[in-house]
């Protein structure tokens, strides 16, 4: 087993075991979506229209808030120092941590989206499309969020600072994610262009996120 897969497996085990944050993101997502009808009223037609937007916003907040402890726990117990000293490039180690984080918090969000969509009166057929956009877009959120997580651990601050730093950077993902979801459900704009741009954003942040996060850790923790 290579160091990359070992780290991936370790992070996933930590997230899944007792005290890990794997399902917390999905739970938060469920609660945020439940709060929405209380704020805007139980009008099913309105909910159906803005359903994709609510789902996207909920997923955005859930995946970012879950990032808070990503490096902080490793920093506290010293394993982050080992990662930085190890032979594996730090960028690769961070990518492994990011993938593990996405598999344990991003993927559950995508999986429970159809259930929540039913509650928001989004059509069953359209639900698949919304889930697809989330599947393509949530990796971008995780990997952009890595930068914020690295910066906040370097400054030994967490929580809101991370959200303040990262949320403006995720605006393009939100725009194209919701646009693709709406295009699939109501049209008339084609689904292809926003969806491919969404995929491009995910791929680009998959490269840039770990590089920037590694730079933040190297410069911050020396």
């Amino acid at each position: 087993m290579s160091a990359f897969t070992a780290l991936l497996a370790r992070d996933m085990r930590i997230a899944i075991r007792v005290g890990g944050g794997a399902l917390m993101g999905a739970l938060f997502f469920l609660i945020v979506v439940t709060m929405m009808p209380f704020a805007i009223g139980p009008d099913l037609a309105l909910l159906a229209r803005i359903g994709p937007a609510i789902l996207w916003l909920g997923a955005l907040l859930a995946s970012l808030l879950a990032l808070d402890r990503l490096f902080a726990t490793d920093h506290d117990d010293g394993s982050l120092d080992l990662l930085m000293m190890g032979r594996m490039p730090l960028e690769l180690a961070i990518a492994a941590k990011g993938i593990a984080h996405w598999l344990t918090t991003g993927l559950p969000l995508v999986l429970i989206t159809p259930v929540l969509g039913l509650m928001l009166n989004v059509e069953l057929g359209a639900m698949g499309w919304v889930s697809l956009t989330l599947l393509a877009g949530t990796p971008a959120l995780t990997f952009i969020g890595l930068i914020g997580a690295a910066l906040s651990v370097a400054l030994r601050r967490g929580g809101l600072l991370l959200a303040v730093l990262v949320l403006p950077l995720t605006i393009p993902v939100l725009i194209f994610g919701v646009a693709a979801a709406n295009a699939a459900i109501v049209g008339p704009a084609p689904f292809g262009p926003p969806f491919t741009i969404l995929c491009a954003l995910s791929l680009a942040s998959f490269v840039l996120g770990p590089i920037a996060a590694a730079a933040a850790l190297r410069h911050g923790l020396e």
Binding site: I197, A216, G220
Partner: peptide, 27 residues
């Protein structure tokens, strides 16, 4: 430490600002 963190954020922002501008215009 703060300057180095802010420098990374400035560079990330410099890469992102054109993308944000493009996406907001598209929007």
């Amino acid at each position: 430490r703060g300057s180095r963190a802010a420098a990374i954020l400035a560079l990330v922002g410099a890469v992102n600002i054109p993308i944000i501008k493009f996406s907001v215009e598209w929007w």
